[in-house]
Write a protein that binds this DNA or RNA. Sequence first.
DNA 1: GATGAATGAGGATTCATTCAT
DNA 2: CATGAATGAATCCTCATTCAT
Lengths: 210, 210, 210, 210
Amino acid sequence: MTRKVAYADRRALRAERQRSERRDAIVRAAERVFGKLGYHAASISEVIDAAGISRGTFYLYFDGKDALFLELIERFIGLVTGALTVVDPASADPASHILENVQRVVDVAFEHPELTRVVLRESRGLNEDIDEKLDRLYGFLHEMVEGALINGAKSGLIRKVHPPVVATALIGAFKEVLLRNLAPVGSLDGRKELAAELFEFGIRGLLVSR
Amino acid sequence: MTRKVAYADRRALRAERQRSERRDAIVRAAERVFGKLGYHAASISEVIDAAGISRGTFYLYFDGKDALFLELIERFIGLVTGALTVVDPASADPASHILENVQRVVDVAFEHPELTRVVLRESRGLNEDIDEKLDRLYGFLHEMVEGALINGAKSGLIRKVHPPVVATALIGAFKEVLLRNLAPVGSLDGRKELAAELFEFGIRGLLVSR
Amino acid sequence: MTRKVAYADRRALRAERQRSERRDAIVRAAERVFGKLGYHAASISEVIDAAGISRGTFYLYFDGKDALFLELIERFIGLVTGALTVVDPASADPASHILENVQRVVDVAFEHPELTRVVLRESRGLNEDIDEKLDRLYGFLHEMVEGALINGAKSGLIRKVHPPVVATALIGAFKEVLLRNLAPVGSLDGRKELAAELFEFGIRGLLVSR
Amino acid sequence: MTRKVAYADRRALRAERQRSERRDAIVRAAERVFGKLGYHAASISEVIDAAGISRGTFYLYFDGKDALFLELIERFIGLVTGALTVVDPASADPASHILENVQRVVDVAFEHPELTRVVLRESRGLNEDIDEKLDRLYGFLHEMVEGALINGAKSGLIRKVHPPVVATALIGAFKEVLLRNLAPVGSLDGRKELAAELFEFGIRGLLVSR
DNA sequence: GATGAATGAGGATTCATTCAT
DNA sequence: CATGAATGAATCCTCATTCAT
């Protein structure tokens, strides 16, 4: 009896692994397809062709196109939030902490260029669930950046700015730079340089400090 | 005979005027519809309903949905490029010149919020013609900003940066701030303050100048 | 101007007529297709093939399969209720009045055999709207028959029965006889005889009157 | 050796019993599911869930959805035909014999309401085999009722009618009354009264005997 | 025997575009 | 010129059935 159970368990385990592998394969295929064509131009047919599965199999793993895209969004959000650590303003060197955050986000974007592209480009207004998730992500990012701005101002490192606008500006700068440098068009492809440049831009701005 | 010709001319003239008025009405309707629903969710049906014309008439004025959208893009591009004047680095006060440019672009966005939204949001990857036009716009903007960065560096006003990346960052910052402030969500709605904040952000950056 | 309006009017009129003719053609095609295959086995493809129209045209006239079927049901209900006149119990000869009703319903069934078949067979439980319409029809029929039973009992012509059950029985008898005799399978096809037999069955029952 | 064979036999026997039990469980589940949702709305998924078996197992016991439904039909036919005994016209009291038959059929319907509903409602036109079985059932019922009508006419108890039509009418009356009274909607639920009413309706008809 | 993941034919519906009037 | 009915390619999704484990 014990033997039988163990056997069944092992089988179930393998099935579970296979299942999650397949799910992953679909998501990776979707990443490629959506990344290349965008949400609208991409059809389920293309996803299943890329994943090498049948029509029905797709619906075994996802409730539909929107659900699949939501999963992509969630993965991206997970990657980005996982890359960020909240900066302690009282720490010895908050700036280098920020640089590390920047570097890790840049790394995420370079490692998942299609995913990054599709999420940054056309993820708004497709579906309530998706919008909500993104609202939460941007809310989180805004809070983080605004917090840093406010703390920096308090400690006299940063000049007084309108935090919501400047946070928006910084986030937009980030998005655009990443988007444009995923498929290098006469621009930086060294991640380090890119991260450094972004950091410098955000922190120091453009004027020569006198 | 002369009389007749004159008469025909006047008629042709009126027809021409009518034609261009109608075309305009369609574009304005499209601006509203696309702005509210986005390119994909908006159907030709909605555009023609909003314009108060028939289905067939629409195709008398435009080659199709994409051609209509291209026209929108072109109008936006015209507005933006029309708002910008090239900054002469040798001028007495290049900075205030830049601020004026910023202000005028902000004005354009505030005067055409739907148009701005739809162009900034989901205009990429729909159609080759559209992409090309946008590429040209962004090329122009990049050149302009990069030029200013380089000139600023030459004259010692601006620190040495990687111009393409920083130009991209600035453009992205602009896009995001405008997008987010078209429908004010707890943010600035005074155009002047917004332009000033953007200008300060771009030029001075965040660090307190010492 | 008057001329133009008249012209436009005539055109609109003809368009209207064409429109309603086409709608009718679709309904008639649906009658045949649903009648032969039943609701489930029939696909929109078959209906549009039978109607000689394109896929899109169908959706120009009907919201979908259910809406088309609802129209069929409504037509049938209209025919049946149109065939029935309420019997005045105080009239000189209520029985012959009833016979006339029976005859007219039989006529309806013979003139629309496919429609009758599909409605009587498998119209329940497909859709709320449809169920509601049918509930109303059956409610009407029940009231009518029960009323006749009660009046007949009052005037001493009919023995005392449980009206709801007997009304149900009579309606069921009708349905089955019609259903079976639409495509004559060794049975009556003369409408008059059928109506007479049904009437006799319902009124006199089976026992020899003594 | 003998021992071993006996052992194997016992094992085979038990397997056989298990097999038939499982088959039965599936049929009972199907009865519930089809009864509640109808043939079309019910999916195999729902049946296997209700039966607590796996997808593949189902196809080990039945050739498919139609075959399962055929089994249901056959069970119903078995119940109905098992409830009926041929009435000997020469017997002392043929009428009470008929009443007993009616009562037993009513009992069957009340004991298997879902099965009765699904068979009476939507069993036609799904499949040739099914139609054939039902044709045979109805043929049997018709013969029986027609025989009774003819015999009754011979013995002078029943007036001369067109037997096929009246038999159809009686069967239809039965079906409708049962269908409507399985889920009592302001109607009889006492089986005895229902059977009595049906019997009276069928035998005596409606006129007051004079 | 039992399982359940995989299959793919089939169905309903949408919408940009055309063209006869 | 204007109209709007007609078109049909394209898309998403379901579910009965199969088959490797």
